[in-house]
């Protein structure tokens, strides 16, 4: 299967995010969208104020359905920020989540090259094109499901660890609280009173 959506033609949709002025304050996303529209297999290329907002997500879903897109490129921020968001969006629109690729034109472009808008524009186009190039070869993948051991371990028996262990235990989870010293309590147990309420520490 080359495509998804039950057809064999690769149909890529490119979505250019303004991110308010974070991207659009340096480069014109419409210009990148126009450029992306000329790339092979790109059948839709549109810009949106905030791709991650409800309006942006709805736009992506509508475009996927309306234009029978089977690959999506979101040219916006870091994958560390919104890859899960856009994977979920394409999934809701009926596409396999791994048929979405992001280009990072915010953290790794407009934020770093804010004083060089022309070079930033050229780079943003290039990063978007590279994402389109990868998207052309994406294949649908299924998440791997693994069993889960219903037991937790908290390392460190100070005030944070004790609270974490008690909360996990109150959720019904068997919890091992590991402490390297002979007693739990940590620094907190050594303190006299604690601020701002001045109650005792233990």
């Amino acid at each position: 299967m080359v495509g998804d959506n039950g057809n064999n033609e690769i149909r890529i949709g490119v979505f250019l995010c303004h991110c308010g002025s974070n991207i659009a304050g340096v480069v014109d996303p419409r210009e990148i969208a126009e450029y992306a529209a000329t790339l092979p297999n790109v059948v839709r290329s549109v810009d949106t104020m905030y791709a991650c907002a409800d309006s942006g997500q709805s736009l992506i879903k509508e475009e996927i359905q309306k234009h029978n897109l089977n690959r999506v490129v979101v040219s916006a921020c870091s994958v560390r920020m919104h890859e899960p968001t856009f994977r979920a969006v394409v999934k809701e629109a009926g596409l396999n989540p791994f048929l979405m690729e992001m280009a990072n034109i915010r953290e790794q472009c407009t934020w770093a090259h804010g004083h060089h808008p022309e070079e930033a524009l050229e780079k943003a186009k290039s990063l978007t094109a590279a994402a389109v190039a990868k998207a052309r070869f994406l294949t649908p993948l299924d998440m791997i499901k693994v069993p889960v051991t219903q037991k937790a371990m908290v390392v460190g028996g100070g005030v944070a660890g004790i609270n974490a262990a008690l909360d996990l235990a109150d959720q019904g989870v068997e919890t091992i609280l590991v402490e390297k010293e002979p007693t739990i309590g940590g620094v907190m147990a050594q303190l006299n009173k604690t601020f701002p309420t001045m109650d005792c520490s233990i």
């Binding site: 889960v148 937790a152 660890g161 004790i162 974490a164 909360d167 996990l168 989870v173």
Partner: peptide, 26 residues
């Protein structure tokens, strides 16, 4: 620290309350 302990317990609980967990197929 207390607040973060409670928060981390909730995050860790998300995993152990699931019968199975999904990992990336890469």
């Amino acid at each position: 620290s207390v607040a973060q302990g409670a928060g981390a317990a909730a995050r860790a609980g998300r995993v152990v309350h699931s019968e199975e967990w999904e990992i990336e197929p890469t």
